[in-house]
Simulated assay, not measured.
Amino acid sequence: MYNLKIFPAVPEDHFKTIKDKFANGKIVSDSEFDSIYPKHLSEISKYQWSPVEVILEAAIFLAEDRNAKILDVGSGCGKFCHVGALFRKSEFYGVEERFHLYEEASRISKKLGLNSNLFLHANMKDIDWSPYDSFYLFNPFYEHITNKNSIDETIPKKVSQFFAYIEIVKRKLFSLKSGTKVATYNSFGGKMPFGYKRVKLDKRFESELEFWVKE
């Protein structure tokens, strides 16, 4: 079990500094933003959480309509939603099956004053995707096929599960309405389903950031 109380508290003024920088259009580095999370989560940010610059680019695309509802599939500690909501003031949601990560994401969201954030403790396969307009996927199932740079050992790793999840995502995306937007960073592990057109490929980052629209 994880006990969030054992980790040193981040000073309240640090959260305010982060919020003020976004409000004033200033650059926030990954190291600075990651420092709002407990050390065991910030230490794996390079491998498990999206870089701030990637999130900003994805948010511009996914939240072009300020009324859009964006879902991060496999939201972890909530970094994508936290950065995205501070940057675009849109409705960013995250679904995460690890309870301790869901709990941490919710706690940090409150510290940042992000009332529009809503994190769901669930497996992505068990929720309805149709209320959302845009989706973000940072290869959320890769840990099932590798032992490298894992988040933790709380979820059994099965190669068969990886491929099962890929098929579930493809079916869910296929069923969504025309105009649905998807951003993938380092892909989601499979090919986009029929009907999705790639409208942009950004190779400036460590992995490819791809933007898709359902026709």
Rank of each mutant, 00 (worst) to 15 (best):
K110V: 07
K111L: 07
L114V: 04
N115G: 14
N117P: 05
F119D: 01
L120Y: 09
A122P: 00
N123L: 05
N123S: 13
K125C: 11
I127L: 09
D128Q: 10
S130N: 12
D133F: 02
S134M: 03
F135T: 01
Y136K: 00
T146D: 11
T146Y: 08
K148T: 10
N149R: 13
E153Q: 11
T154F: 15
T154R: 15
I155Q: 06
P156M: 11
K158G: 02
V159M: 11
Y165L: 07
I166T: 13
E167T: 08
I168Y: 13
I168C: 13
V169N: 06
V169I: 14
L173H: 00
L173E: 02
L176S: 04
L176A: 08
K177P: 08
T180E: 02
V182M: 02
V182D: 03
A183K: 02
T184R: 00
N186G: 12
F188G: 06
F188T: 04
G190F: 02
F194Q: 10
F194D: 10
G195H: 00
R198D: 03
R198L: 03
L201A: 14
D202E: 05
D202V: 01
K203N: 10
R204S: 08
E206W: 09
E206Y: 09
E208D: 13
E208V: 02
